[in-house]
């Protein structure tokens, strides 16, 4: 039996990853009940995946060219800037003084930013098991390890697992939602479920990201005798 117009529309929406909650339920039941629907969806999804991959290759080639030309532009610009600086020596000196002042003013912020970038890695203490794709936790972890933090977060919120708050906090941190991230890590520490030292480590990094150095130092000192001890000591030295 041919698919109905509604079923075809459902496939279109699923291919755009835009199913609403009720559509998702309808879609899941059709996938389970109708072999024809399932085959049609999987065929179309497969074709679209190849198309997306090919389009990415084309875009990547275009950006490679842009990148190469930007390198050339940059070297030409530097040479031009040198000539201009020579010609307008006094102006350049004044500009330099202003820039140095600005740099000093902003250096603290930049340092914490670079330290955060240098030390932060998403928590990877919950293993992703191959062949368990139907389990909600595994689906969420697959998205999380694939850096699809928005979707992973939605699933983590719905499930119960010892490191739930820690993973949620990491998702928020990657989405730059620092207040929510702090709350999640604090919950993880208070509940004492899962890896509380990891929660303290990520909370310390969150504080550093928002330039709350005192709180960050406090947590790092607490971690000195834990599995995060080495990292904490190194980071403390870098902060000093």
């Amino acid at each position: 039996m041919a698919l109905t117009i509604e079923e075809i529309e459902l496939i279109y929406t699923a291919l755009r990853d835009q199913l609403t909650e009720s559509q998702q339920k309808d879609f899941n039941s059709k996938i389970n009940d109708s072999e024809e629907f399932k085959i049609e969806y999987e065929t179309q999804r497969n074709i679209m995946n190849y198309l997306k991959a090919q389009q990415k290759i084309e875009l990547k080639n275009e950006l490679k060219k842009l990148y190469s030309s930007s390198k050339k532009t940059k070297s030409t610009t530097s040479f031009t800037s040198y000539l201009m600086a020579y010609k307008y020596g006094i102006a350049a000196t004044i500009a330099l003084i202003v820039c140095v002042s600005l740099f000093i003013f902003n250096s603290g912020k930049d340092n914490f930013d670079s330290l955060y970038l240098e030390y932060y890695e998403p928590y990877a203490g919950v293993p992703l098991l191959r062949g368990s794709d139907q389990d909600s936790l595994q689906i969420a972890l697959s998205k999380y390890y694939n850096h699809n933090f928005e979707e992973a977060l939605l699933i983590f919120k719905e499930i119960e697992t010892p490191n739930r708050d820690l993973l949620i906090g990491n998702c928020y941190l990657n989405l730059s939602k620092l207040t929510e991230a702090k709350k999640a890590f604090e919950n993880a520490i208070e509940s004492k479920k899962g890896n509380t030292n990891a929660a303290k480590w990520y909370l310390a990094l969150t504080y550093m990201k928002e330039e709350n150095v005192q709180q960050s130092l406090l947590l790092l000192s607490e971690l000195q005798n834990s599995e995060y001890g080495e990292l904490a000591k190194k980071l403390l030295e870098d902060i000093k």
């Binding site: 497969n46 074709i47 995946n49 190849y50 198309l51 997306k52 991959a53 090919q54 794709d133 694939n146």
Partner: peptide, 29 residues
Amino acid sequence: DIERFYYDTDMSDKGDFDHERMNATKHAW
């Protein structure tokens, strides 16, 4: 790159990368 981009689009896809299917997509396009 093409394989990685293919798997990136759908990590839960259990089907292996298949050059025939890729060619079919290219042809259709």
